[in-house]
C-alpha cells in the first residue's frame, strides 16, 4: 500500500523494549517465560527472534501487542510508536492493533472467521479503523490482495478462507495485517506450516513488502535458514532471555555464545552428510526449574563454576554485537 496515513511513524525508532519480563501465573505454578529483555527497533529494520520451543520468543513478540493470555503478568516497559503498550487497557490496545502494529500468525485459518469471505473481513477491519465507507474499503482490499500477489485477486475477494490453499491464505493474512498500514509488522513463524516451495514464496514476498513499505518488522522463528533469508539483526533467545544479539551475517559467521554455536552445529545442512552431527547435549530447559546461574550452563561445553553461580548479562563486545556469556567465543568474532 503506497499510502502514508501514519507517515510520521515511518521514520526513526518504532519499538523500545526495556527490561521486559513475563510470568505465567496459574493455580499450579508461577513460571517466568521472559526475563530482562531489552531491545530497540528502527523503521525499515527486520529483527529476528530466534529460539527453540520454550525460549520465550513468541511471548516476547506478543507482549508488543498486548496479545497475552489473562494468566500473564508483564513487567518492564514496551513502547511501540510512542504508545506505552504495557500501560494500556484492552480497549486502547484494540486501537493500536492494526494501524500501529499488526501481526501475521503461523496458522492463518485461525485468524479468519470461517463464515465470512476474506474480502468482507479485510474490508471491515479497514472500515472499523479508518471510518471510511465499505465501498471504498473494498476497493482498497482489492489493491491489497494484488499487493500480496494473489492471482486473480478480484475473484478471491469473495472466497471463504477454507476455499484458499495454504499459501493463498497466508497471503490473505498478510493483506489483512497490512490493511491499516502498520508501522510495525509482527510475524510469528508465518512460514512454518507451509511447504518448502510455498515457504520461499512467502518469505520473498514479506521481504519485498517490508522493503517497499519501510515497515519495522519482528520475525519469530526457530529456523536459522528463515532468519538468514529475512533478518537484518538477530536476537537468539534461550530460556526466556536474549543470549546473543547482532547483525545476521556476522552472527552466523562468527557466533560467540556457546548456545548459538551449538545451534548452528546441530542444524543439518547441505554439507553435513557423512559425518556425525555435533548436537547440544541434554534437553530443553525446564522453565519452572531454572538453574541459579546461567540458564544454559547444564548443557554448555564451556561451563565453569562461575556459570553456576553468576548469571551472565547481555554485554556488548563490539559496536553491534552482544552476548550473555562468561566465556564467549570472542577470538573468532570480528572486533
Amino acid at each position: 500500500m503506497p499510502r502514508e496515513t501514519t507517515g510520521q511513524a515511518r521514520a526513526g525508532r518504532i519499538v523500545e523494549v526495556q527490561d521486559l519480563s513475563v510470568r505465567f501465573v496459574t493455580r499450579d505454578a508461577d513460571i517466568s517465560v521472559v526475563q530482562d529483555v531489552s531491545f530497540t527497533l528502527d523503521a525499515g529494520e527486520v529483527l529476528c527472534l530466534l529460539g527453540e520451543s520454550g525460549s520465550g520468543k513468541s511471548v516476547t513478540m506478543r507482549s508488543l501487542l498486548g496479545l497475552l493470555p489473562p494468566t500473564a503478568r508483564v513487567g518492564g516497559r514496551v513502547m511501540v510508536s510512542g504508545h506505552e503498550v504495557t500501560r494500556m487497557t484492552e480497549r486502547q490496545l484494540e486501537s493500536v492493533r492494526g494501524p500501529v502494529a499488526a501481526m501475521v500468525f503461523q496458522e492463518p485459518m485461525t485468524a479468519f472467521d470461517p463464515v465470512f469471505t476474506i474480502g468482507t473481513q479485510i474490508a471491515e477491519t479497514i472500515v472499523s479503523h479508518e471510518g471510511i465507507s465499505y465501498r471504498v474499503a473494498r476497493a482498497r482490499v482489492l489493491e491489497l490482495l494484488e499487493l500480496v500477489q494473489i492471482p486473480s485477486a478480484a475473484r478471491r475477494l469473495d472466497a471463504y478462507p477454507h476455499e484458499l490453499s495454504g499459501g493463498l491464505r497466508q497471503r490473505a493474512m498478510i493483506a489483512l495485517a497490512l490493511s491499516c498500514s502498520p508501522a510495525l509488522l509482527l510475524a510469528d513463524e508465518p512460514t512454518t506450516a507451509l511447504d518448502a516451495t510455498v515457504q520461499i514464496q512467502i518469505l520473498l514476498l514479506l521481504r519485498q513488502l517490508q522493503r517497499d513499505l519501510g515497515m519495522a518488522t519482528i520475525f519469530v522463528t526457530h529456523d536459522i535458514g528463515v532468519a538468514c533469508e529475512i533478518a537484518d539483526r538477530v536476537a537468539i533467545m534461550y530460556a526466556g532471555r536474549f543470549v546473543e544479539t547482532g547483525p545476521i551475517d556476522t552472527l552466523i559467521s562468527h557466533p560467540a555464545h556457546p548456545y548459538t554455536i551449538g545451534l548452528l552445529s546441530s542444524t543439518v545442512h547441505e554439507s553435513s552428510r557423512g559425518r556425525p552431527l555435533a548436537p547440544i547435549q541434554g534437553g530443553p530447559p525446564d522453565l519452572a526449574d531454572l538453574p541459579g546461574g546461567c540458564g544454559f550452563a547444564p548443557r554448555c561445553v564451556a561451563r565453569t563454576a562461575l556459570c553456576d553461580q553468576v548469571r551472565p548479562t547481555l554485554i556488548p563486545f563490539s559496536t553491534t554485537r552482544a552476548a550473555a556469556c562468561h566465556h564467549p567465543a570472542l577470538e573468532t568474532a570480528p572486533a
Partner: peptide
C-alpha cells in the same frame, strides 16, 4: 530441481532472489 532451489540458503550474503515455483501444489 525446484525443491532444491526452494531450500533456504543458510547464508545471509547469498539469499534466494526469486521463488523457483509459483503457487501451491
Amino acid at each position: 530441481r525446484a525443491l532444491f532451489s526452494s531450500r533456504l540458503s543458510m547464508n545471509p550474503a547469498d539469499r534466494v532472489v526469486a521463488p523457483p515455483l509459483t503457487g501451491d501444489p
